[in-house]
Simulated scan of single mutants.
Amino acid sequence: MELLDKQKHADLRIQQPSWRNDHFRQIMVNEFSAAASVCPIFLTKNPETGDFYAGALFGFTANENLLAEQPEIAGAFQPLDLAREAFYITGENISIDPEHSRFSETAGEPLFESDGEPSDVLRKIQRVLGQMNIGMAETERFIAALLADSLVEPLDISLRFDDGETVNLQGLYTVSLDRLHELDDAQVLALFRAGHLQLIYTMAASLKQVNILAHRRNMRLTAAA
């Protein structure tokens, strides 16, 4: 990891990120609305810390992405975490992983103009990092509110596909609407005023995308047969 420098990295170019092998990607609450239109949103736990984070599901097994080949999906939703891949915030600066496959000195778009100013692609990444920085804090507050009201519940999803394979989705959580309806008026009002109530219902509505993804998978199986 090293700080991005207009002199040191003057010749560095960046290629578009690929999410072809992504089946699950972390997202922020400011992405929920767009994500819910094409894929289900869940909570899961960081295996190292045990902390919850929000993520979007694109496929049912490792390296399976049922959306990447759909051009209309890319126009509707692309995770911020994907767009900023290989770039990080370090204090008030931007750091990069110079060994990341996105970087090249021969292919892709330049990070800097000839006068040393950020190129359009770098300015876009700067905006993405800013959105992520804000979104991360908002997401942490949202999840903390869910946990405080005991609204997080595990999901048990088992899917059987046309080729006979059964896939069990494990380690995923959602919001309990039953528990939500048991909260008192003051608790619900607090969730509403914080903007969390809308996020809860967006997560719940996104679960319908599980069956749509399953249909996409079956269609892929049929095409490959």
Rank of each mutant, 00 (worst) to 15 (best):
T202V: 08
D81G: 05
M132L: 08
T44N: 11
S101C: 12
P154Y: 13
A205C: 11
V121H: 05
A76C: 10
L67A: 08
F42G: 00
R193Y: 06
L57W: 02
V152F: 05
D115S: 11
E99H: 04
D156G: 09
E153W: 00
A190L: 06
I89C: 13
N168S: 15
A107E: 15
D178I: 01
A145Y: 04
R217M: 05
P118E: 03
M203N: 00
E140N: 05
T61H: 08
R141E: 07
E109G: 09
G59P: 03
K208A: 11
S95E: 14
L197S: 01
H196P: 03
L169D: 07
L122A: 03
G116N: 09
S119P: 13
D97Y: 02
Q78E: 13
N46E: 08
R216C: 12
R13Q: 10
R20Y: 11
F32R: 04
R220P: 04
A194V: 04
I125R: 09
N63V: 08
A205Q: 09
L147V: 07
Q131H: 02
T139W: 09
D185R: 14
E182D: 12
I89M: 08
A62L: 15
R179H: 05
F42D: 00
E48H: 05
D11V: 03
T174I: 03
Q15H: 07
Q15W: 14
L122M: 05
S33A: 01
F58N: 07
L207T: 10
L57M: 13
Q126H: 07
V152H: 01
Q7G: 15
D156R: 14
S33E: 10
L3Q: 12
F52Y: 13
T44C: 07
L122Q: 00
M132E: 06
L172E: 03
L191A: 01
E138W: 01
A86F: 02
V38E: 02
L159Y: 11
L57Q: 07
N211K: 12
N63W: 11
Q209G: 11
L172T: 02
V38D: 05
R160E: 11
G195P: 01
L129H: 04
D120L: 08
S18Y: 15
D178V: 07
S158G: 06
S206P: 07
D162L: 15
L12G: 06
Q26W: 15
A107M: 04
E117D: 09
K45L: 11
L147E: 13
P154E: 13
R141Q: 01
A204G: 03
G171I: 01
A54P: 01
N46S: 04
A190T: 14
L189K: 13
Y201W: 14
L80F: 06
A35C: 03
Y201K: 08
S150P: 01
A83N: 02
L155K: 12
L177W: 04
